[in-house]
Amino acid sequence: MSNQDLSAYSGIWCVGEVRHGKLAPTIFEILTAGGQIAAALGQKLSVVLIGSGLGPWTKEVIEAGADQVYLIDHSSLEQFVDEAYAKALTDLVNQEKPRALFLPASTIGRSLAGRAAVMLKTGAAADLTDLSAASGSNGFEKGTLLATRPSYGGNILATLVNTRSRPEIYTIRPMVFPRSPKDSTRTGVVRNITVDPATWNLRTKFIAFQAESSNEIDIGSADKIVSGGRGLGKAEGFETVRSLAKALSAAVGASRAAVDSGWIPYKHQVGITGRTVRPKLYVACGVSGQVQHLAGMGQSEVIVAINKDPECPMMKLASFSIEADLYEFIPAAVKELQKHQS
């Protein structure tokens, strides 16, 4: 498949996610990951933004490390449409020939990476949790990108390499890399890319966005999560879970059992058929810790389990386990937290 001249490809691109008119903060995490690679390879670090009215963000991303910013700014690109964004991005790639593209492993990032990769006839890997450039000492040619990602529900860590096609495309799991520091003295080049989507053969039309009415934190981007499981016993148990989440400024997660019981909507589900999270703090309340659930949160930094059953898998896995009735413990903990805050 590789009849490409791989050496013609240079530069690290971080593709930012502009979702419903806002730049997602994941770009700053990706700038950290991409920045390391750009430094190791001695290549230029660029940010690509696709959307409408992007100007205000150029300064931010330059200050966060971008040498160059590509703006594909067009009123008809205001909302994410797979075909349109893929077309915009791949046209630019074909013209500029970067070495690697990094995107957030979000709905937009993962959708776009999958489609763009095939359009570019290149390889993609999803949801990286680690990334480095080979030093040349461990069997990989110097400069080879080593991309690590969990698979089989986190049971296996696989290290992937793409030595056959360019650009390499990777999506990066949110909350894994720290945000790149801001340096207001930095400067960079802004390149406005002119596109004419009217001439593209687009078959998808964006109709509307319905914002989630609640002001809840999304579990995918939360650095703290408080989760409830079957042990809550009833739907009202989530009020207790929410009280702790509020006191910790955490998002609310749930096990499949809780979601299937209709206690809380699916978007809160953590686990194999739900979402994979890796927060700094994961508090599992009445979650026994079925493998399917552990697959979705086992890589959290600190895990706290609150359960009546000291023998359940979650209690054995947790960094801190608290054997208690959660209906007694949580109110006490909330009180204690309030004390701490005041």
Binding site: R19, H20, Q79, F80, V81, S106, T107, R203, T204, K205, F206, I207, A208, F209, Q210, A211, E212, D218, G220, S221, K267
Partner: peptide, 13 residues
Amino acid sequence: RMMEDGTDILEIQ
């Protein structure tokens, strides 16, 4: 489409 912050509605040929 399920988005992190809500729902997108799209028409697709």
